[in-house]
């Protein structure tokens, strides 16, 4: 069968008519398949949701147990029948619980990768390449400028700064699901064993990661109750990026604005946000990883979504791989 009759974009999201489901729909639907727990992909209010156990649990942590009427677990690698199609989930390496979703019917297999990355992440399973006819790739960092550096070096910058500016609280902006926990793990791997202070918005997700066996080490709430302001001097405080422009940040001594994001590679982006210490750490593929993944899979066709579609489509053209942009709306840039 033709690929674009198996899956096609609609205003509610990517739709599979034969199976009667949407993938990562942006509006409430009857049946949703969810790739991962980030808020722009996993929304509350659907009737039935099929996702990995961890993604379902993350949704329950974020939205409450009643985030949908019928949650159903998709074990990784297991083929499941929905209507006239077969689906199976495979690790995507993006955040804890994240999966690619393969959709098959009449000899046509499309893999929806959701968001993914290829480099090692101590907080989730690694991306698993799945051969396919059509590969739907994200393009968040789909420009040749994006070459994410080694994340241990980036964390090293933070550790250096803590020594160099021991009187300042280092406020690290990091997305609450995935990035925050990864930064914490990277700090632990680099030998940093002091308590890390976290913003209230991170507490429940960090607890969940700990319950899933990811040892984040000693974490403490970044509250001032019963504590001298100077207790934060030379310490790491992690919170959602938006909190640092907020009055919340005033409780800390001489705050140093740190931001962990792939966007921090471009100096002007860091400058505009008033970031003093950028850490280029991303949960998405950089350009080299995007193009290497496509070269490795060699799908018959590539569909490119959310991000800078045009550059990746151009690259595919130059490589002789059929490609087109898939104009999906409603997905955010990382950490923005």
């Amino acid at each position: 069968m033709k690929a674009d009759s198996l899956l096609y974009p609609t205003p509610k999201g990517l739709y599979c008519e034969k199976g009667g489901f949407y993938i990562d729909p942006v509006q409430p639907v009857e049946r949703a398949l969810i790739t991962h727990g980030h808020a722009d992909h996993a929304r509350a209010g659907h009737q039935a949701v099929l996702a990995t156990r961890q993604t379902l649990e993350i949704m329950a942590v974020r939205y409450g147990e009643a985030f949908c009427q019928t949650p159903q677990e998709a074990p990784l690698g297991k083929e499941m029948r929905i209507g006239d199609v077969t689906v199976h989930f495979h690790p995507a390496g993006h955040v804890l619980g994240s999966a690619q979703i393969a959709v098959e019917a009449e000899g046509m297999r499309i893999v929806v990768s959701g968001d993914y990355k290829r480099r090692r992440d101590p907080t989730c399973l690694s991306f698993e390449p799945v051969p396919c006819d059509v590969f739907i790739t994200e393009a968040t960092f789909g420009l040749p400028v994006f070459h994410h550096p080694d994340d241990a070096e980036e964390v090293g910058k933070l550790l250096t700064s803590l020594k160099q500016f021991p009187e300042r609280a280092h406020l690290v902006g990091a997305y609450a699901l995935g990035k925050a926990q990864r930064v914490i793990m990277l700090l632990r791997e680099a030998g940093y064993d002091a308590p890390i202070f976290i913003h209230g918005a991170l507490a429940r997700l960090c607890d969940y990661y700990q319950r899933e066996g990811i040892d984040l080490g000693p974490l403490e709430p970044a509250t001032i109750t019963g504590r001298d302001k100077s207790a934060f001097a030379g310490r790491v405080v992690i919170g959602p990026p938006s909190a640092f422009a907020d009055k919340w940040a005033r409780r800390f001594p001489e705050p140093m604005a740190v931001f962990a994001s792939g966007w921090m590679l471009v100096r002007q982006r860091a400058r505009q946000r008033g970031v003093e210490l950028p850490m280029v750490i991303s949960d998405h593929c950089d350009w080299a990883e995007l193009t290497a993944t496509i070269a490795e899979l060699r799908p018959g066709e590539v569909w490119v979504t959310h991000g800078r579609e045009e550059a990746l489509v151009r690259w595919c053209e130059l490589e002789g791989i059929a490609a087109r942009p898939l104009h999906l709306v409603g997905y955010d840039d990382e950490g923005e």
Binding site: L143, P144, V145, F146, R267, Q268, R308, E310, R314
Partner: peptide, 16 residues
């Protein structure tokens, strides 16, 4: 595409 995004020639080249 890259230059349009970054806006500074030296920085664009350093990145790509």
């Amino acid at each position: 595409y890259s230059y349009d995004y970054v806006g500074d020639l030296a920085e664009t080249i350093s990145l790509v």
